[in-house]
Design a protein around this nucleic acid. Structure first.
Length: 341
DNA sequence: TTAGTATT
DNA sequence: CATAATACTAAA
């Protein structure tokens, strides 16, 4: 019996391998989009296939993906995935799993240096064999070695239960709130959306001194490793868990909290609505696209309102119909939605 | 400045 | 044809 989760894994694996292969990015995106649609299904794909005779009716499933996944459901195997795995060493996926190493780098390491496994990669880094490869300077090699070491220690990244990270969230929020420059600090991301597992933690700080706050954040005693630190954003590892902290001006807090809470699919939906209304939505606010006038941003409520929506509770922000349900302006009434004052 | 990777 | 918008880092 092939479960929906198996189909999701297959679709994502195909997408990852296509990226390493250097295929058209729209192709891998289609597989990822299909994976998201399956994740959101409440019904078993096998039941749909039995009833409909095909998977075509599923959103995000065109003829090609439909046919491939029907084969997987009926035979338990995916010849297409197997062919890709024969073409591209699937162990390269462990390498793209390292933070900072993506599909382009993995492809170069494989084709130019014969690297296919993490052990290969470490040996290649130490041997100096990577010098001369495009975009592969000494600093990059050092970063890769550090990432390999971290991977060995922690066994890599995995989602963990919400309950297990709750104390950490409290500790870090308290630490941020204790900084003199902090005006407000809140948790965002999947934790705020109430998910029962989290892959990382997302924290947001309102401040007039973002640089100072992020320097202090990176220097917290709990921090094991600093992945990156800029003037608005800092990523660290605490207790083996990645923690991203974003610092914004207080009057941008609402837009930033909305953005940082996600989900990604929810944000894309909202930004699409903004475009259709002649607006631009980003983490700094809602802007008129003609001029730079900001029409919202201090609170989440005003961000949603500027888009003609009621505020949506974080737990519902998954792009599973909640945006349509929150519409204040009825659909299809006007063809020029952006023209109201 | 650009390429690559990353985040929601 | 093609999902939105932006941030950080190292290399070129």
């Amino acid at each position: 019996m092939v479960a929906n989760a198996d189909v999701v894994r297959t679709l994502e694996r195909i997408a990852d391998l296509l990226d390493i292969k250097g295929e058209n990015p729209f192709k891998s995106r289609s597989y990822r989009l299909a994976a998201v649609q399956v994740e959101n299904l409440s019904e078993q794909l096998t039941d749909i296939l039995a009833r409909e005779g095909s998977l075509d009716p599923i959103e995000g499933f065109g003829p090609a993906i439909s046919e491939k996944m029907a084969t997987l459901l009926t035979t338990g195997r995916s010849p297409y995935l197997e062919q890709l795995e024969a073409e591209i060493p699937p162990t390269l996926l462990e390498i793209t799993g390292l933070p900072g190493v993506g599909p382009r780098t993995a492809a170069t390491l494989w084709k130019e240096a014969g690297v296919t496994t993490l052990d290969d990669l470490e040996a290649a880094c130490r041997s100096g064999r990577l010098a001369g490869l495009p975009r592969m300077g000494a600093r990059t090699v050092e970063k890769i070695l550090a990432a390999c070491a971290a991977q060995r220690d922690t066994g890599g990244r995995q989602r963990r239960p919400r309950a297990g990270v709750e104390p950490l969230v409290d500790t870090l929020l308290d630490a941020l709130r204790g900084l003199p420059a902090t005006r407000r600090a809140e948790v965002a991301g999947s934790f705020r959306r109430g998910r029962d597992t989290v892959g990382d933690l997302d924290l947001l700080v309102a401040t007039e001194q973002p640089h100072d706050v992020l320097v202090s954040f990176a220097a917290l005693p709990q921090v094991e490793r600093v992945l990156l630190r800029g003037d608005t954003k800092c990523s660290v590892v605490v207790d083996g868990l990645q923690v991203d902290c974003r610092a914004v001006a207080p009057d941008q807090f609402g837009a930033a909290w909305q953005y940082f809470t996600g989900s990604q699919a929810h944000n894309i939906r909202l930004r699409g609505i903004a475009l259709r209304r002649g607006l631009l939505l980003n983490e700094y606010g809602v802007f008129g696209s003609d001029d730079d006038t900001r029409v919202a941003g201090a609170t989440e409520e005003e961000v949603y309102e500027a888009l003609g929506l009621r505020w949506i509770p974080p737990e519902q922000r998954e792009d599973r119909g909640e945006v349509e349900a929150a519409r204040i302006t009825p659909v299809g009434v006007s063809s020029q939605e952006g023209s109201e004052s």
